[in-house]
Design a protein around this nucleic acid. Structure first.
Lengths: 144, 144
DNA sequence: ATTACAAACGCAAATAATTTGCAATTAGTG
DNA sequence: CACTAATTGCAAATTATTTGCGTTTGTAAT
């Protein structure tokens, strides 16, 4: 069953979180909702036809991440990747250490783990989000 | 029960993985094994009294990570952190989004999850490592 | 010990990634 | 329509990481 992220009302989504529904931000969300994997800032710029100023992009992504519309994922490369959260099922990733191939992983044990994590710490009272990434060498890269 | 990472024979550990046991690398491992939390490259340099060349440090850490002696962790800041693996129990982290406070988390469901992850993908045949980090606002930061 | 070779080092410099400041523009509210 | 705060777009600064290369140094094999 395909997801219907493209049917999300992005202007409303933005306004609901206190952000402004500018044309730039709305089309950024549209762009992200068409992607099936996390993009670098560079890649987003390219997909947008270079029409987005880099700084503006960084700021929009940061704002979106703050309110949970997108999330930032780190794949142990030295740059961040972003993917949309709104309209997508919660998931994680498996990443090839050689070629950067990224695949979604639909396994998450978070519900069961949250309690024990919070039970262990005295410094945190709640968990806002979590990241879980698996790393390996993909089958293509293994064969040299 | 305190861990005894300081009793590890680092020269032997290095040689076993095919790396050279240079004085610099051995003391880098000693330094890391005294830390209870992941350090940035800058922080490592500072702790080492600035005597380590930055490039050398980057290269050592990369080599160590490649062979699994240390691991790189990404906390959604824009720089990597490194922590020693050798001699430490497997663990994850919970990170404050405001102040960068980091705490270890001793929960890991990996054993149970690995199979289902590999069952889902056609591109990967094994998982080399994984990262799991929890994010929230620590109690200190919550109170403004 | 001595040698030989690859690994590791250190320094300069390049590149990449992210952030800051500020003036101009614009969405949302009343 | 007017007001205000959010957003934008540059320029420029910072921060993070990488590359190249000549020199040094562990290590394994004489």
């Amino acid at each position: 069953m395909k997801e219907k992220a493209h049917k999300i009302n992005f202007p409303a989504l933005l306004r609901n979180t206190g952000l402004k529904a500018t044309p730039g931000r709305v089309s950024l969300l549209k762009l992200l909702s068409k992607e099936r994997k996390p993009l670098t800032v560079e890649a987003i710029k390219k997909k947008a036809g270079g029409k987005i100023d880099t700084v503006t992009l960084y700021r929009a992504l940061e704002d979106f991440a703050d309110v949970g519309i997108v999330r930032r994922v780190d794949f142990e490369h030295s740059h961040a990747h972003y993917e949309i959260v709104a309209g997508r099922k919660h998931h994680h990733h498996i990443i090839c250490k050689k070629c950067e191939k990224v695949e979604d992983v639909d396994v998450c044990e978070f519900e069961g783990v949250e309690k024990s994590v919070l039970g262990q710490t005295r410094n945190f009272s709640s968990i806002m989000n979590h990241s879980l990434e698996f790393f390996g060498i993909c089958n293509q890269c293994v064969n040299k």
